[in-house]
Amino acid sequence: MFSFKSRLINATLAATAVIPLATAGTFTFAASAQAAALTGEFQFQGGFTANPSATSLITLSKDKLNFTPQPITPIGITANTGSFGAFNTGNIGNIISFASDIADNPFMDFGNLNIPGVILPGENTTSITDGFNTFSLESADYSIAQSGANVAIDVQLWGFFTSATGEKSKGAGNLTFQVNNQTVTQVNSTLASGGSISNLSFSGGAFATVPEPTTLLGLSAIGIIMGVSRRRKTQVSS
C-alpha cells in the first residue's frame, strides 16, 4: 500500500511540475502569435496607374464586382494603425460571385509604393503582388439604399488576414460607392436585366483581430492534460 501511495504522490508532484512550464510556454506562444499576426485597421480608396493612365474604378453587376485596371488595381492605404502602419498601398482583386462567395484571393495584397496608391511608370510593384501580407475573402454581400438623389451601395466583406510569416487573424470590412442621380428601383432594374453599372469610384475600411489569448490557452490546455496523463501512466508502470 505504501509503495503504491508513494508512486501516486511522486506522479502527482511530477505532473504538477510540468504544468507551470507548459503554461509558461503557452503564454509565450500566445504573445508571439499576436505579435506576428496582422492587427489594427485602415481605410482605403481607389488609386491611379500612370502608364497607361487609369484610375482604379468599380463595375457592379448583379452577382459580380470587378475592378479596373487589370492586372493590378492599386488602392491607397490611409488612417492605418497597428501592423497596417507599415503599408501605404494595396492591390485589390475581383469578387467573382456574391452568391457563391467566390473572389480573387488574396482579395487584397499590401505593400508600398513611392506615392501611396499610385503606380508610376516603370515602378516595381512586387510588394503588392507577392502574396505576402494579404486579406482573403470568405464571404461578401452588398446592399443598396437611397441616399438623397443618389443610390448608396455598401459591400460587406468577411475573411482573414495573413501576415508575411503565415499567421492568420480574423478580418472584416466595408467597401462603398454611389450611383448618382438614380433611384434604387432604377439600379435594381439595371442589375436584374443583366446590365451593369461602371466607372464608379470607391472607398472603404477594414480591421483585423487575432484570437483572444484565452482561446489559445484553452487549445493548449488539451495538450497539457494529455502530457500529464502520459506522464502518470509512465510513473505507474515503472
Rank of each mutant, 00 (worst) to 15 (best):
T73V: 10
T214C: 01
G223A: 15
V236N: 13
F98A: 10
L217C: 02
Q182S: 12
T129L: 04
N66C: 01
T215Y: 13
A152M: 10
A22F: 11
G223N: 10
S189D: 13
W158S: 09
A50K: 15
G25I: 07
F135T: 07
S163K: 05
T59N: 08
N124I: 09
F202P: 00
G194F: 07
D104A: 14
I102W: 02
A206I: 02
A14C: 06
G85C: 03
G195E: 09
A22V: 06
G40K: 03
D141H: 03
N94F: 04
S3V: 12
V210T: 14
T190R: 11
T49D: 04
T190P: 00
S100V: 00
G204N: 11
Q186W: 04
L120M: 13
R231K: 08
S97Q: 11
F42D: 00
A99K: 15
G93Q: 13
F132S: 13
Q43M: 07
T28W: 07
I19H: 05
F110Y: 14
V210K: 00
F42M: 11
A31G: 08
L175G: 02
V184W: 09
N94E: 08
T190A: 11
T214E: 12
M1I: 05
A50T: 14
A164L: 04
T68I: 12
F202I: 07
T12D: 08
A86L: 08
F87K: 02
G25R: 03
I77A: 03
N150Q: 07
A31F: 10
F67W: 09
T39C: 03
P213E: 08
N174S: 15
L21P: 01
G85I: 01
L219N: 14
T134N: 07
S169M: 05
L200T: 04
G25E: 06
F87S: 02
P121Y: 10
V187R: 02
Q70K: 15
S237C: 06
I19F: 14
Q70R: 10
A152W: 01
G159K: 02
T165G: 04
I19L: 14
S61R: 10
V118H: 11
G90D: 03
T215P: 00
T125F: 03
N66P: 00
T78P: 00
Q43K: 13
I95D: 06
E138I: 12
N174K: 13
R232C: 01
Q43N: 12
L65M: 15
F4Q: 12
A172E: 10
G76R: 07
F44I: 06
T134C: 03
G111Y: 01
T16P: 01
F44S: 05
L191P: 01
Q43G: 11
I77Q: 03
I19K: 04
S136R: 13
V18A: 10
P71T: 09
T28P: 00
A145D: 10
I128D: 00
S97E: 13
T176D: 14
K233V: 09
F135N: 03
G40Y: 03
G205W: 06
I58T: 02
